[in-house]
Simulated scan of single mutants.
Amino acid sequence: MWSHVSTPRFLTLPPGVRQQRIHTAIGDFAALEALPVSGVPERWPALLIPGLTGSKEDFIAVLQTLAQSGRRVVAIDMRGQHETPGPDDPAAYTFAALGNDIDVLAHAIAPREPLHLVGHSFGGLVAREAVIDGRTKFASCTLLSSGPGAIVGPRRQAAETMVREIPDHGVEYLWTNHLEPKVVTAGVPDQIVTFLRKRLLSNSAVGMVAMAQAILSAPDRTAELAQMTLPLLVLLGEHDDGWPPQDQAEMARRLSAECVVVPGAAHSPAVEAPETTAAALTRFWNAAETRSRLTL
Protein backbone atom coordinates (compact mmCIF):
# COMPACT_ATOMS: atom_id res chain seq x y z
CA MET A 1 0.00 0.00 0.00
CA TRP A 2 1.21 3.48 -0.87
CA SER A 3 0.36 6.95 0.39
CA HIS A 4 1.48 10.34 -0.87
CA VAL A 5 3.50 12.73 1.32
CA SER A 6 4.50 16.32 0.69
CA THR A 7 7.88 17.34 -0.72
CA PRO A 8 10.21 19.43 1.50
CA ARG A 9 10.31 23.02 0.27
CA PHE A 10 14.10 23.00 -0.21
CA LEU A 11 13.93 20.08 -2.68
CA THR A 12 12.73 20.34 -6.24
CA LEU A 13 11.67 17.04 -7.74
CA PRO A 14 11.74 16.48 -11.52
CA PRO A 15 8.50 15.94 -13.46
CA GLY A 16 7.12 12.46 -12.89
CA VAL A 17 8.83 12.09 -9.48
CA ARG A 18 6.93 12.32 -6.21
CA GLN A 19 7.38 11.40 -2.57
CA GLN A 20 5.56 8.33 -1.32
CA ARG A 21 5.32 6.16 1.75
CA ILE A 22 5.28 2.39 1.29
CA HIS A 23 3.22 0.57 3.91
CA THR A 24 4.32 -2.98 4.74
CA ALA A 25 3.73 -5.52 7.49
CA ILE A 26 7.13 -4.64 8.98
CA GLY A 27 6.63 -0.87 8.92
CA ASP A 28 6.46 2.16 6.63
CA PHE A 29 9.28 3.19 4.29
CA ALA A 30 9.79 6.67 2.85
CA ALA A 31 10.33 6.62 -0.91
CA LEU A 32 10.62 8.62 -4.10
CA GLU A 33 8.63 7.13 -6.95
CA ALA A 34 9.36 8.01 -10.58
CA LEU A 35 6.98 7.25 -13.44
CA PRO A 36 7.19 8.06 -17.17
CA VAL A 37 6.00 11.61 -17.80
CA SER A 38 3.85 10.29 -20.63
CA GLY A 39 2.49 6.82 -21.22
CA VAL A 40 2.46 3.94 -18.76
CA PRO A 41 5.27 1.77 -17.39
CA GLU A 42 5.83 -1.12 -19.78
CA ARG A 43 9.13 -2.45 -18.46
CA TRP A 44 10.00 -4.09 -15.17
CA PRO A 45 10.38 -1.73 -12.19
CA ALA A 46 13.51 -0.94 -10.21
CA LEU A 47 14.32 -0.43 -6.53
CA LEU A 48 17.25 1.82 -5.54
CA ILE A 49 18.95 1.48 -2.12
CA PRO A 50 21.14 4.30 -0.75
CA GLY A 51 24.40 4.14 1.18
CA LEU A 52 25.02 4.32 4.91
CA THR A 53 24.71 8.09 5.43
CA GLY A 54 22.64 8.59 2.27
CA SER A 55 18.93 8.60 1.46
CA LYS A 56 16.49 8.33 -1.41
CA GLU A 57 17.37 11.90 -2.42
CA ASP A 58 20.80 10.72 -3.60
CA PHE A 59 19.03 9.32 -6.68
CA ILE A 60 16.97 12.42 -7.60
CA ALA A 61 19.25 13.28 -10.55
CA VAL A 62 18.71 9.90 -12.26
CA LEU A 63 15.08 9.11 -11.42
CA GLN A 64 13.36 10.95 -14.28
CA THR A 65 15.78 9.60 -16.89
CA LEU A 66 15.42 6.05 -15.60
CA ALA A 67 11.63 6.28 -15.60
CA GLN A 68 11.54 7.65 -19.14
CA SER A 69 12.78 4.28 -20.38
CA GLY A 70 9.25 3.05 -19.59
CA ARG A 71 9.48 1.79 -16.03
CA ARG A 72 8.53 2.66 -12.47
CA VAL A 73 11.59 3.44 -10.35
CA VAL A 74 11.51 3.62 -6.56
CA ALA A 75 14.28 4.96 -4.30
CA ILE A 76 13.93 4.37 -0.56
CA ASP A 77 15.25 5.36 2.83
CA MET A 78 16.22 2.17 4.62
CA ARG A 79 14.99 1.65 8.17
CA GLY A 80 16.50 4.22 10.52
CA GLN A 81 17.48 6.48 7.61
CA HIS A 82 16.19 10.04 7.12
CA GLU A 83 12.39 9.75 6.83
CA THR A 84 12.01 6.02 7.57
CA PRO A 85 11.75 5.28 11.30
CA GLY A 86 13.87 2.59 12.91
CA PRO A 87 14.08 0.97 16.34
CA ASP A 88 16.79 1.46 18.96
CA ASP A 89 17.92 -2.12 18.53
CA PRO A 90 21.26 -2.84 16.82
CA ALA A 91 19.93 -6.21 15.62
CA ALA A 92 17.53 -4.35 13.32
CA TYR A 93 20.45 -3.04 11.26
CA THR A 94 22.35 -6.20 10.39
CA PHE A 95 22.74 -7.10 6.73
CA ALA A 96 20.31 -9.99 7.25
CA ALA A 97 17.63 -7.74 8.76
CA LEU A 98 18.05 -5.04 6.11
CA GLY A 99 18.13 -7.63 3.34
CA ASN A 100 14.83 -8.99 4.62
CA ASP A 101 13.41 -5.45 4.41
CA ILE A 102 14.36 -5.39 0.74
CA ASP A 103 12.58 -8.68 0.13
CA VAL A 104 9.42 -7.28 1.74
CA LEU A 105 9.67 -4.01 -0.21
CA ALA A 106 10.24 -5.83 -3.49
CA HIS A 107 7.00 -7.75 -3.05
CA ALA A 108 5.14 -4.59 -2.04
CA ILE A 109 6.42 -2.66 -5.06
CA ALA A 110 6.18 -5.42 -7.68
CA PRO A 111 4.02 -8.31 -6.43
CA ARG A 112 3.56 -9.84 -9.86
CA GLU A 113 6.73 -9.10 -11.83
CA PRO A 114 10.51 -9.22 -11.41
CA LEU A 115 12.26 -6.15 -10.06
CA HIS A 116 15.70 -4.68 -10.78
CA LEU A 117 17.78 -4.04 -7.67
CA VAL A 118 20.44 -1.31 -7.31
CA GLY A 119 22.47 -0.82 -4.15
CA HIS A 120 24.85 2.11 -3.63
CA SER A 121 27.88 1.56 -1.36
CA PHE A 122 26.53 0.06 1.91
CA GLY A 123 23.27 -0.40 0.02
CA GLY A 124 25.09 -2.70 -2.38
CA LEU A 125 25.97 -5.03 0.49
CA VAL A 126 22.30 -4.97 1.52
CA ALA A 127 21.18 -5.70 -2.05
CA ARG A 128 23.66 -8.59 -2.19
CA GLU A 129 22.15 -9.99 1.01
CA ALA A 130 18.64 -9.86 -0.43
CA VAL A 131 19.77 -11.71 -3.56
CA ILE A 132 21.72 -14.39 -1.68
CA ASP A 133 18.93 -15.10 0.83
CA GLY A 134 16.93 -16.43 -2.12
CA ARG A 135 13.49 -15.29 -0.93
CA THR A 136 12.90 -13.07 -3.95
CA LYS A 137 13.62 -13.64 -7.63
CA PHE A 138 15.09 -10.34 -8.85
CA ALA A 139 15.36 -9.31 -12.49
CA SER A 140 18.94 -8.11 -11.96
CA CYS A 141 21.27 -6.68 -9.35
CA THR A 142 23.62 -3.70 -9.73
CA LEU A 143 26.38 -3.01 -7.21
CA LEU A 144 26.92 0.76 -7.48
CA SER A 145 30.25 1.87 -5.98
CA SER A 146 30.12 -1.14 -3.68
CA GLY A 147 32.80 -3.68 -2.91
CA PRO A 148 33.32 -7.34 -2.06
CA GLY A 149 33.59 -6.96 1.71
CA ALA A 150 34.59 -4.50 4.43
CA ILE A 151 35.14 -0.95 3.22
CA VAL A 152 38.69 0.36 2.95
CA GLY A 153 40.47 3.67 2.40
CA PRO A 154 39.27 7.12 3.53
CA ARG A 155 35.66 5.99 3.89
CA ARG A 156 36.76 3.30 6.32
CA GLN A 157 38.16 6.05 8.50
CA ALA A 158 34.81 7.85 8.32
CA ALA A 159 32.96 4.71 9.48
CA GLU A 160 35.45 4.25 12.32
CA THR A 161 34.81 7.86 13.38
CA MET A 162 31.08 7.18 13.50
CA VAL A 163 31.55 4.12 15.70
CA ARG A 164 33.90 6.01 17.99
CA GLU A 165 32.12 9.37 18.27
CA ILE A 166 28.35 8.81 18.08
CA PRO A 167 27.88 6.69 21.25
CA ASP A 168 29.64 9.25 23.44
CA HIS A 169 28.85 12.54 21.71
CA GLY A 170 25.84 12.00 19.45
CA VAL A 171 25.07 12.56 15.77
CA GLU A 172 25.07 16.36 15.96
CA TYR A 173 28.65 16.30 17.28
CA LEU A 174 29.62 14.16 14.29
CA TRP A 175 28.03 16.68 11.92
CA THR A 176 29.52 19.78 13.54
CA ASN A 177 33.04 18.47 14.05
CA HIS A 178 33.57 16.14 11.09
CA LEU A 179 31.07 16.45 8.26
CA GLU A 180 30.01 20.11 8.13
CA PRO A 181 33.57 21.46 7.76
CA LYS A 182 34.12 19.17 4.77
CA VAL A 183 30.96 20.15 2.88
CA VAL A 184 31.48 23.86 3.58
CA THR A 185 35.09 23.68 2.38
CA ALA A 186 33.88 21.90 -0.75
CA GLY A 187 31.64 24.86 -1.57
CA VAL A 188 28.33 23.01 -1.24
CA PRO A 189 25.38 25.45 -1.58
CA ASP A 190 23.75 26.55 1.66
CA GLN A 191 20.39 24.90 0.98
CA ILE A 192 22.12 21.56 0.35
CA VAL A 193 24.17 21.96 3.53
CA THR A 194 20.90 22.56 5.38
CA PHE A 195 19.42 19.42 3.89
CA LEU A 196 22.50 17.31 4.65
CA ARG A 197 22.43 18.40 8.29
CA LYS A 198 18.69 17.73 8.61
CA ARG A 199 19.10 14.32 6.98
CA LEU A 200 21.98 13.24 9.19
CA LEU A 201 20.28 14.36 12.41
CA SER A 202 17.10 12.52 11.45
CA ASN A 203 18.94 9.19 11.25
CA SER A 204 18.77 6.65 14.05
CA ALA A 205 22.00 7.00 16.07
CA VAL A 206 21.81 3.31 16.98
CA GLY A 207 21.28 2.44 13.33
CA MET A 208 24.20 4.56 12.14
CA VAL A 209 26.61 2.93 14.59
CA ALA A 210 25.34 -0.58 13.85
CA MET A 211 25.58 -0.08 10.09
CA ALA A 212 29.04 1.48 10.39
CA GLN A 213 30.17 -1.55 12.40
CA ALA A 214 28.65 -3.80 9.73
CA ILE A 215 30.47 -2.11 6.85
CA LEU A 216 33.75 -2.28 8.77
CA SER A 217 33.46 -6.04 9.23
CA ALA A 218 31.45 -7.13 6.17
CA PRO A 219 32.53 -10.57 4.92
CA ASP A 220 33.41 -11.21 1.28
CA ARG A 221 30.35 -13.01 -0.11
CA THR A 222 31.33 -12.69 -3.76
CA ALA A 223 31.52 -16.45 -4.27
CA GLU A 224 27.99 -16.88 -2.90
CA LEU A 225 26.60 -14.10 -5.08
CA ALA A 226 28.31 -15.64 -8.11
CA GLN A 227 26.20 -18.77 -7.61
CA MET A 228 22.95 -16.85 -8.03
CA THR A 229 21.37 -16.98 -11.48
CA LEU A 230 20.60 -13.38 -12.36
CA PRO A 231 22.29 -10.64 -14.42
CA LEU A 232 24.85 -8.68 -12.39
CA LEU A 233 26.41 -5.27 -13.04
CA VAL A 234 29.29 -3.60 -11.21
CA LEU A 235 29.03 0.15 -11.80
CA LEU A 236 31.59 2.52 -10.29
CA GLY A 237 33.19 5.92 -10.55
CA GLU A 238 36.63 6.26 -12.08
CA HIS A 239 37.93 7.94 -8.91
CA ASP A 240 36.00 5.97 -6.27
CA ASP A 241 37.43 6.59 -2.79
CA GLY A 242 35.42 3.85 -1.14
CA TRP A 243 36.49 0.47 -2.38
CA PRO A 244 39.37 0.91 -4.86
CA PRO A 245 38.27 0.65 -8.51
CA GLN A 246 40.65 -2.27 -9.05
CA ASP A 247 39.00 -4.19 -6.21
CA GLN A 248 35.57 -3.61 -7.72
CA ALA A 249 36.80 -4.66 -11.15
CA GLU A 250 38.23 -7.85 -9.66
CA MET A 251 34.91 -8.50 -7.92
CA ALA A 252 33.15 -8.13 -11.27
CA ARG A 253 35.53 -10.69 -12.77
CA ARG A 254 34.79 -13.15 -9.96
CA LEU A 255 31.07 -12.59 -10.50
CA SER A 256 31.33 -12.95 -14.29
CA ALA A 257 29.51 -9.61 -14.23
CA GLU A 258 29.65 -6.66 -16.56
CA CYS A 259 31.81 -3.83 -15.18
CA VAL A 260 31.17 -0.21 -16.18
CA VAL A 261 33.45 2.63 -15.05
CA VAL A 262 31.92 6.11 -15.12
CA PRO A 263 34.53 8.67 -16.26
CA GLY A 264 35.14 11.57 -13.90
CA ALA A 265 32.89 10.23 -11.14
CA ALA A 266 34.00 9.29 -7.64
CA HIS A 267 31.92 7.42 -5.03
CA SER A 268 28.49 8.73 -6.08
CA PRO A 269 28.06 8.37 -9.86
CA ALA A 270 24.29 8.98 -9.63
CA VAL A 271 25.08 12.46 -8.29
CA GLU A 272 28.35 13.22 -10.08
CA ALA A 273 27.52 11.83 -13.54
CA PRO A 274 23.76 11.18 -13.57
CA GLU A 275 23.16 10.92 -17.32
CA THR A 276 26.02 8.46 -17.84
CA THR A 277 24.91 6.44 -14.83
CA ALA A 278 21.27 6.38 -15.92
CA ALA A 279 22.24 5.36 -19.46
CA ALA A 280 24.36 2.46 -18.15
CA LEU A 281 21.55 1.23 -15.89
CA THR A 282 18.88 1.52 -18.59
CA ARG A 283 20.97 -0.35 -21.14
CA PHE A 284 21.76 -3.10 -18.61
CA TRP A 285 18.16 -3.45 -17.48
CA ASN A 286 16.80 -3.58 -21.02
CA ALA A 287 19.33 -6.25 -21.98
CA ALA A 288 18.52 -8.27 -18.85
CA GLU A 289 14.81 -8.18 -19.66
CA THR A 290 15.43 -9.22 -23.25
CA ARG A 291 17.55 -12.20 -22.15
CA SER A 292 14.98 -13.22 -19.55
CA ARG A 293 12.08 -13.14 -21.98
CA LEU A 294 14.04 -15.15 -24.55
CA THR A 295 14.51 -17.93 -22.00
CA LEU A 296 10.84 -18.10 -20.95
Rank of each mutant, 00 (worst) to 15 (best):
E172S: 10
A223K: 12
P269Q: 05
P90W: 06
G242L: 11
V206M: 05
V40P: 00
R18H: 15
E258G: 12
A249I: 15
M1W: 07
G149I: 05
S38D: 11
V131P: 03
A150P: 04
H178G: 00
T282L: 08
V184I: 14
V152Q: 11
G153M: 05
A266Y: 07
T290M: 11
P189T: 04
L66D: 05
E258T: 15
R72T: 12
L232P: 00
T53W: 01
P111D: 08
R254K: 14
E57K: 04
D247F: 10
A31H: 03
K198Q: 12
A223S: 15
E180H: 08
L233W: 07
M1G: 13
A92V: 07
H82M: 09
E160N: 04
E289R: 06
H107L: 14
E289W: 09
S55D: 11
A270K: 00
L294I: 02
W243Y: 15
V262T: 10
I132H: 03
A287Y: 06
A273E: 10
I102P: 01
L236E: 08
E83I: 03
V206G: 01
A273Y: 01
T65S: 15
I76R: 02
D168R: 14
M1K: 05
L144H: 06
V118A: 02
T282E: 10
W2C: 02
A158C: 01
A270S: 14
I60G: 08
A205F: 02
A67Q: 08
A265D: 09
R253I: 11
P85Q: 08
S121N: 04
P90M: 05
